[in-house]
């Protein structure tokens, strides 16, 4: 890729889910680890929207948290604009932090209920020292206007707003740091569809105006298809397929992607007979050996049970499946 803004190399994260020490000793149990993500590689170019799609336990939120620095990675590197985030000093990290922001899933939890909207939106301005005195207010009011709220909303508290308006406030807060890159973790999954459309359109408009780069995380394939310029599919913490544009939805390569697309309820009423989906996502504490998808895969071969498949080139990207090798 010509000019990646974010590059993720071999990113992995394990969580210690062991019982307390005393229980372990008494019950003679080993330490237990949950591998939330393993060996994830991708890069995001400036101005694009890279989407990560996956079901529960796929590790998509863990990746988001590692990228914005809420969780330290267990292994691998995250490079922002060429700088390894794990190696830069505190002052450089602080400068880097301003350049990426995050929008959260639940607009009812992501705004401090005791703060006025104006204070919420201007917090990044003050923290990063981007404005002083009356400038702060002016900038904050401009941001509220940008996201479709009015300046007099600054005096109100979050509970006075509907879900969609709260998500607008959260977007205004993210924008106030003047970031280049925004991680959006399920930004519309708590909203009703008609409001979701407003927020998705707003995010599109802002991207066009400000040249933002998005990492868009969602479980909703239709939303991802609408937003993404490139899409990665996660299954049990591993990236199973990455594909350019809408080709993922037209021509899925990995059996899991195919299954996922088949499972989406069909609004077009095409009456297609879909292949019945079988099985459920296994417990990530004891993931299957080899390819994590093999127990549910209709086309699995013996090799899938033993070897983790490497990533192979596909016409529009890459996919980790032995059958493509």
């Amino acid at each position: 890729m010509a000019d990646p803004l974010i590059e993720v190399r071999g990113l992995g994260r394990r969580f210690d889910v062991s019982k307390p020490w005393l229980n372990r000793v008494l019950e003679r149990e080993e330490r237990q680890y949950l591998t939330a993500t393993a060996d994830v590689n991708f890069s995001i170019a400036r101005g694009e929207t890279f989407a990560l799609v996956g079901e529960s336990g796929s590790g998509k939120s863990t990746i988001a948290k590692m990228i914005v620095g809420l969780l330290p990675p267990s292994e691998g590197q995250i490079l922002f604009d060429g700088q390894d985030m794990g190696k830069v000093g505190t002052s450089e990290l602080r400068a880097l932090r301003r350049r990426f922001q995050m929008i959260f899933q639940d607009p009812f939890a992501s705004l401090n209920p005791r703060w006025r909207v104006g204070d919420i939106v201007s917090e990044p301005l003050r923290t990063f020292g981007l404005a002083k005195g009356a400038e702060v207010t002016r900038e904050m009011e401009r941001l509220l206007d940008t996201v479709g709220l009015s300046a007099r909303d600054a005096e109100k508290f979050p509970h006075e707003f509907s879900g969609g308006q709260r998500q607008r406030i959260a977007i205004a807060r993210a924008l106030s740091a003047k970031p280049e890159f925004i991680v959006c973790d399920e930004p519309t999954s708590a909203l009703d569809v008609s409001v979701q459309a407003q927020i998705l359109n707003l995010m599109r408009d802002l991207q066009d105006e400000m040249g933002l780069t998005y990492l868009f995380i969602s479980h909703d394939l239709s939303v991802v298809r609408h937003m993404a310029t490139r899409t990665g599919v996660l299954y049990l913490g591993r990236l199973v397929e990455v594909s350019e544009g809408k080709s993922l939805f037209r021509d899925p390569q990995h059996p899991y992607t195919k299954m996922l697309l088949d499972a989406v309820p069909d609004l077009a009423l095409s009456g297609r007979r879909r292949t019945p989906v079988t099985g459920e996502i296994p417990n990530p504490i004891n993931p299957p050996s080899g390819c994590p998808f093999h127990p549910r895969c209709p086309v699995a071969i013996d090799k899938c049970k033993t070897d983790v498949p490497p990533s192979f080139q596909t016409p529009n990207g890459s996919a980790a499946c032995h059958l493509l090798g």
């Binding site: 922001q101 995050m102 917090e123």
Partner: peptide, 13 residues
């Protein structure tokens, strides 16, 4: 563990 605290952390508060 609420998101507003995480948001403050992302800002670097």
């Amino acid at each position: 563990s609420k998101e507003y605290v995480q948001a403050a952390k992302v800002i670097g508060a």
